[in-house]
């Protein structure tokens, strides 16, 4: 707050005797602490970005991005892992998106207030909190073994899809609920049926929000390791996956394997840095995109 004035009068204080109040002192101390917290958080997270970028950059080359690993993981590139991560993520979203959207539509538009619906809501909330390794166990027991898909892209995508489901449902619900009631009423008042209103009014106006939520989950799925460890990922394949039943390499698992297996730590570390940089770039670009989009939408809806 700025001001411009001619000071004819003297300032006053209620405590003329005391130079500094205790409360002002604790305020200064407290604010210092808060600043330190924020600085530490940013420092640590910033140093991760710094190390991965600075040490990973030398590993990146056209060959690194486009060729397969050679000589027991000590040379060559990570192209199969990039392709694997893309296909696993794509598969997971292809499975979870329609299902999650349908569920969100039901919960926001059709849901009768019954115990059953409450149970569905509860199960979504709880599904969201389950550790990814438990999803991995489930995927292994059901998709890999019972359904007999084996360790494959299909098993991995389904496992990742189930993991992403709660996030997609709640993002879609939020987007659908943000559609003003007046839009729906206008449509219904014109004689549209419930489904026509959903399909032509509700979904089109909530679509940007829904897609943002989906993109945000893409980032999480792409970086996930524990859920694909025993459902889809393999340390090494010769080439690219040729069907949904083949094992795939994936960037996150590749980083893990490079760090814990193999016999040439030096050269493997460089490749791990390079893979980390690719994964990080991928995930951060995707999630920044989602967050920027969301902020823009919030401004549109005046939220």
């Amino acid at each position: 707050m700025k001001y411009k004035t001619i000071h004819t009068a003297e300032p006053f204080t209620a405590h003329p005797g005391k130079a500094i109040r205790m409360s002002d002192f604790s305020q200064a101390l407290g604010f210092l602490f808060l600043g330190a917290c924020a600085a530490f958080a940013l420092f640590f997270l910033g140093s991760i970005l710094y190390f991965v970028i600075v040490r990973g950059a030398p590993a990146i080359s056209w060959e690194f991005l486009t060729s397969a690993p050679r000589k027991a993981m000590t040379q060559g590139g990570v192209a199969p892992a990039i392709v694997g991560t893309f296909s696993l993520t794509l598969g997971a979203i292809a499975f979870a998106f329609p299902l999650g959207l349908a569920c969100a539509i039901y919960l926001t538009e059709y849901s009768p207030k019954t115990i059953l619906v409450n149970i569905i809501r509860l199960s979504i909330a709880n599904l969201a909190g389950i550790p990814s390794i438990v999803f991995g166990l489930f995927g292994f027991a059901i998709f890999v073994k019972v359904f007999g898909f084996g360790v494959s892209m299909l098993s991995g995508s389904l496992t990742l899809g189930i993991m992403a489901l709660p996030g997609i449902i709640s993002a879609s619900q939020e987007a659908i609920l943000a559609v003003p009631q007046s839009y729906k009423e206008a449509s219904l008042a014109l004689g549209a049926t419930h489904w026509q209103t959903i399909a032509r009014v509700v979904l089109p106006s909530s679509l940007p929000g829904i897609l943002t939520g989906v993109i945000l989950n893409v980032g999480r799925v792409a970086g996930e390791t524990a859920a694909i460890m025993f459902t889809a990922a393999t340390f090494y394949t010769r080439g690219y996956p040729d069907s949904i039943f083949s094992e795939v390499m994936a960037l996150p698992y590749h980083i893990y394997a490079l760090m814990t297996e193999g016999t040439h730590p030096e050269s493997q570390t460089l490749i791990a840095y390079g893979s980390s940089l690719i994964l990080l770039t991928l995930v951060l670009v995707v999630s920044s995109l989602a967050i920027i989009l969301r902020q823009r939408q919030r401004r549109v809806y005046g939220l």
């Binding site: 569920c103 039901y106 569905i120 166990l137 419930h194």
Partner: peptide
């Protein structure tokens, strides 16, 4: 048609519940 849509959505909405129960059952069974 309206009824059909409603039914489709309600069936799909049960997916989460199905998966949650599936996970619990799997963990118990295994």
């Amino acid at each position: 048609r309206e009824t059909i849509y409603k039914w489709i959505f309600s069936v799909l909405a049960f997916a989460s519940l199905l998966f949650l129960t599936g996970i619990i059952l799997t963990l118990f069974v295994e």
